[in-house]
Amino acid sequence: MSRLSSSPRISSGLGVAGAALLAVAVLVALAAPLIAPWPPMQIDLRARFTPPAWEAHGVLRHLLGTDNLGRDIASRIVWGARISLGVGVAASLLGAAIGGTLGLCAGYFGRGVDAAISWLIDVQLAFPFTLFALFLLAVFGGGPGPVVVVLALATWVNYARVVRAQVMALRGQDFILAARAVGVPSGRILLRYLLPAVAPAMVVVGSFSAAQAILTQAALSFLGVGVDPSSPSWGAMLDLGRSYILSAWWMATFPGVTIALVVLGANLLGDWLREWLDPLAVSRR
């Protein structure tokens, strides 16, 4: 980490920028029916390949142009925010539930439990994930539900590793020993003592994992196994635009830029949260 980026003032500015980017994306997703100028699926074959408004032959009605079926790019990006963000957040939360539980158990119980869960983590990390995801989605079909599950299977490792390491450090501390001495059952020690102590770290991992999930989801759509290809998802738009990259550059460019901005926002926010919630962890590096 460079000297510049670890300076609190500069990084908090970037953190606010990241939060703002995400806030805009969330507002757009929530208000999609109000701000999208066109229905996202409306086909208008006479308006196919309309370039963005500022290009020659562009029209103001289609600000960012239209695709090969005459659907409005801007409207599809606005509606796509619902799918991309929804799936990204859902996958990140499900990953947190799985990874948090496994990480807590591995770190607290140690021994056999830890060995089994660590083995699972190693297997997951060693496995070519995209291949695994392609296989699962090919077998169980696409749609938001299976995609969320598959993405959660990609992100749980992030939580499990961080939580396990933190719990191992906390396990020997006096307040845990005191709880054991009082006779507090393990379940309550995990939920009321350890979980609150690792929650800040999980929030940080969560912001990075959401970014990873959004990106992976776009990649899956790009490969044609994501959510329903006709529904407006940013990855699917990118995939479609790839075929026309030379004749209609706007079809791939705008969804691509959107993905980049949202992922950047989530990562900036994550960096900032990490410094804000856990200043020691950053200065120790």
Binding site: D174, L177, G183, P185, R192, Y193
Partner: peptide
């Protein structure tokens, strides 16, 4: 063993470290 703990308790050197800061 957990049930027996009612009858045997412990006081630590550093009270702050031995209390759950979030309770």
């Amino acid at each position: 063993l957990r049930r027996r703990r009612r009858a045997m308790q412990m006081i630590f050197q550093d009270p702050f470290a031995s209390l759950n800061a979030r309770m």
